[in-house]
Every structure is written in structure tokens, then in C-alpha cells.
């Protein structure tokens, strides 16, 4: 439960942010752990939970998403991916040793040009919502999002809202967090540098610097 992650959708994008702590109990062993994984050309998830389970489960999801992409020449669309991931967790819940992984799944549906965000917990509970948080973020930043989020947000406003949330976590939670962040839009998954003053401008200026390693071979969409 030492985790904290956020997801925000806007007009034609979705942002995922996650804390970067790794440790056990009260001990922090790492403050630069990446806990966001690209699952496809337009799909990624921010995850937290029991260490070990998280890595195992995200690897499993990533490989299955890739297998589907290779077999069918098209990546799973976000709604279908969310259904599959949810089922894996729900089935695991009633097994001998369930995965304890909570995640936010963000994706961009290239067929409808709509962003998607799914809040999924280790039980296999799924919520299809415009903004979401896991971990500490649920306690202190959901109300911030309730207040500032609006329909059809531009990217700059999305980053602004994310900063408000991170600020809330940093001022109200005892644990110190670093955050990393990605943005998914029609062009794919991009890294956002939150230390920059205007990460969105940086992204449009030099998109090649924001490239995220995507597991799947990116196959050009049929015309």
C-alpha cells in the first residue's frame, strides 16, 4: 500500500503517473523504480502492490498482449485489454496464491479516437472512469481531481491537474515520492518529463526524446 498512481483522461489523450519507490515496509530501497509499463503501441499500465507479484504479473500481461498482436496483426483495443486483464486477476483471486497487483490501465482506441482509463484492483474490480488514483492518491487526491477535472481537457490542463495531485500527495503524505509519467495519444506512448516547466511543449518539439520502449512491433495501421 505504499504506492501512489494517477490516471487522467482528456480530449484525445490519457496520462498515467506513478511513484518510483521500491522497498519493504518502512524501508525505501530505491527511489527511481519505473512502475509504468507500455503494453502495446497505444496501451500502458501503472501498477503497484506486492513486489514480485507486480513484476511477474506485468510481464505476463505484456507478453500476452504481444502474443495477441503477433497472432492477429492488430493489438487488443483498450476495452478488450481491460476485460482480459480483469479476468486474469479475477481468476487469480480464487487460486491458491492470488496476484496482489493494483493497476491503472490507460489506452488510446485508434478505431474510435477515444482515450480510455480503467481502474483495476487485485480483486479484479474494474471501473471505467475519466480520472483515477491508486494507493495514497485515493485518500488525498481524488477530491482534487473531482474539483479540477473537466470534460475534454487539453494536454496542458491534464499535466496541470497531475501536478496539483502530486503536490497534494507530497504535502499531505509522510512518505516522500518521486513521480514518473507517460502520455498516450494517437501517436503512441510518450514519456513526460515532470521536472520540465512545460513537458507538453517539449514533447511536441522533440517527440523522439520522449520515446518509450514499446514491446510490440509497431505495425502501420492499414490505410
Amino acid at each position: 500500500m505504499g504506492d501512489c498512481s494517477f490516471g487522467i483522461t482528456g480530449k484525445d489523450f490519457v496520462i498515467l503517473a506513478s511513484d518510483m519507490n521500491a522497498g519493504r515496509g518502512i524501508i525505501k530501497m530505491k527511489s527511481d523504480e519505473n512502475k509504468i509499463r507500455a503494453l502495446g503501441p497505444h496501451l500502458a499500465m501503472a501498477y503497484g502492490g506486492e513486489t514480485g507479484d507486480t513484476e511477474q504479473f506485468t510481464d505476463y500481461v505484456e507478453r500476452n498482449m504481444r502474443l495477441y498482436h503477433i497472432r492477429n496483426h492488430n493489438a487488443l483495443l483498450p476495452p478488450a485489454a481491460s476485460a482480459w486483464i480483469r479476468r486474469q486477476l479475477a481468476q487469480s483471486l480464487r487460486s491458491r496464491k492470488p496476484y496482489a497487483v493494483n493497476l491503472l490501465l490507460g489506452g488510446f482506441d485508434t478505431t474510435t479516437s477515444l482515450p480510455h482509463l480503467y481502474w483495476i484492483d487485485y480483486l479484479g474490480t474494474k471501473a471505467d472512469i475519466p480520472y483515477a488514483a491508486h494507493g495514497f492518491g485515493m485518500y488525498v487526491a481524488l477530491s482534487t481531481m473531482d474539483k479540477w477535472w473537466f470534460e475534454g481537457m487539453p494536454k496542458e490542463k491534464g499535466v496541470e491537474l497531475l501536478r496539483k495531485c502530486i503536490n497534494e500527495v507530497q504535502s499531505r503524505i509522510v512518505v516522500q515520492f518521486n513521480f514518473n509519467c507517460i502520455l498516450i495519444d494517437a501517436d503512441g506512448v510518450h514519456q513526460l518529463d515532470l521536472s520540465a516547466s512545460d513537458p507538453i511543449a517539449d514533447l511536441s518539439r522533440a517527440p523522439e526524446k520522449a520515446e518509450v520502449e514499446v514491446p510490440n512491433p509497431i505495425i502501420a495501421a492499414p490505410a
Binding site: 492477429n72 483495443l77 476495452p79 478488450a80 481491460s82 476485460a83 482480459w84 479476468r87
Partner: peptide
């Protein structure tokens, strides 16, 4: 059942 979407035709 698995993907909560109609099966693509070619599949």
C-alpha cells in the same frame, strides 16, 4: 467472454 467484444471477422 474473454475480451468483452465481438470477435473480429477474420479471427
Amino acid at each position: 467472454f474473454t475480451y468483452d467484444e465481438d470477435i473480429p471477422v477474420e479471427m
